[in-house]
């Protein structure tokens, strides 16, 4: 208990003192996770919608694949990404391993199935007749999609939150592909793990608290968008 209180004080000191290192680690964490969330939202929502609205051979197989993707452990994704990005790996020419871009790639791979799966089920929950009704009022296909997303905005934003939650809390893949390099690829989760193994429990707890505050802040913004128009 003393340790947690100590951690709270330490967190306060680090934040109030605008500790340059903590600030840059936090900023990088936000940059990386928001970028990964944005990319996986674009890919996941588009692909999830495509699967939800279309009939094609192997559809059930694809849905099963997406649902499996939602449960793949991040370390496995990290391992595969590392092997691909190695100097002598398939994508070695890009020289991306141990860069923030590598973390983004791994996190996109983790979050996309999540966003895709939830998008798929939320679009499927809207009756087919609703789509027809929107079209029957003269909507183009694009306008129909707009109304569809508007109608499914609660679960869709939940999908984005789930994607964001899975990447900001993720540590295994980030360490593997990012390498926890100081000032370069060190993010809050990997820094927390490192400080823990260094025995700097108070700093570790402080980093954990900052991580939770950031997570809460982003989710709060998303929830605001999600819950808009519910008050009346």
């Amino acid at each position: 208990m003393d340790l947690i209180i100590e951690g709270l004080f330490q967190a306060f000191r680090l934040i109030a003192g605008l500790d340059a290192e903590v600030f840059s680690v936090s900023l990088l964490t936000l940059q990386v996770t928001l970028m990964a969330t944005l990319i996986s939202t674009v890919i996941g929502v588009a692909a999830g919608t495509a699967v939800a609205l279309n009939e094609f051979p192997g559809r059930t197989f694809t849905v099963g694949l997406i649902n499996t993707g939602m449960g793949v452990p991040p370390v496995v994704v990290g391992l595969i990404t590392t092997v691909l990005l190695w100097r002598h790996g398939v994508l070695g020419r890009l020289e991306l391993l141990y860069t923030p871009s590598a973390i983004i790639i791994a996190q996109v791979l983790i979050a996309t199935p999540m966003v895709m799966g939830i998008t798929l089920s939320s679009i499927q929950q809207i009756p087919r007749a609703f789509r027809l009704q929107v079209m029957a009022l003269g909507a183009s296909r694009f306008q129909m999609l707009w109304y569809l997303y508007r109608e499914a905005r609660l679960p869709l934003l939940a999908a984005i939150m789930a994607g964001f939650g899975s990447v900001i809390s993720e540590v295994g893949a980030s360490i593997m592909v990012g390498g926890n390099i100081r000032g370069h690829t060190r993010v809050l989760t990997t820094a927390t793990v490192m400080e823990t193994s260094r025995g700097n429990f108070d700093t570790a707890i402080a980093l954990g608290i900052i991580l939770m505050v950031l997570t809460y802040a982003v989710n709060y913004i998303l929830s605001r968008i999600q819950q808009r128009g519910r008050q009346r």
Binding site: P127, A129, F130, A136, G138, Y147, R150
Partner: peptide, 27 residues
């Protein structure tokens, strides 16, 4: 865009009555 159709189920948006009636017009 020249015609419109109403179904057996009302199939309203999760929005206000105003938004619902305005839907075809906004389209």
């Amino acid at each position: 865009s020249r015609l419109s159709m109403a179904f057996q189920e009302p199939l309203l948006l999760h929005a206000t009555v105003f938004d619902n009636v305005a839907m075809g017009l906004r389209i």
